[in-house]
Amino acid sequence: MLSKIVRTISNQLILFILVFGLYIIMHGHVTPGGGFQGGAVIASGVVMMIVAFGSSEIKKSLRERHLSVVESSGALIFIGMAFAGMGTIFFYNFLVGTPVFGGIPPTGPNPGNVWTGGVIPLMNLGVGLKVIAGLSAVVLAMALFSSGEEIEE
């Protein structure tokens, strides 16, 4: 556990890091970014909390079992979105034209509309959950092991 200054600043910063990562994930189809990048941003925030507070404090609120569940659900969202278009072809963008993320942008440079993209924002969300949980679980397991704490079964 680091000093009180570092802990206070980390407590204030983690909120902005989470909001920024979620913005990068959910705007992945109109601006630079996407699931992998936003997931890496949020996992970096989790690593910052682990460094500031120590892994034994983080272990009380963030368990590897729950991270496994989040990672598997992200993978299931991704594969489910791929299989849901199976009526036409694998990875078919079946949501274009429906009320959910169904807008079609005009051809050429345009101001950008979040409500477009079909299944791609949902796939970004699934991949983002997967990357957040995966990287956080790896770093948490390494930190717990090197500090001699118990790793939960």
Binding site: G28, H29, V30, T31, P32, G34, A75, F78, I79, A82, F90, F91, N93, V96, G102, G103, I104, P105, P106, T107, G108, N110, G112, T116, G117, G118, V119, I120, M123, N124, V127, K130
Partner: peptide
């Protein structure tokens, strides 16, 4: 990519639509 996958980001279109199987293997 804008007419076929309805999003502005061509990299996201390649990643999740044209080469979706690649991303599945990466995941």
């Amino acid at each position: 990519s804008q007419a076929e996958t309805a999003n502005n980001n061509v990299v996201a279109a390649v990643l999740f639509d044209y080469r979706g199987l690649d991303t599945l293997g990466e995941a």
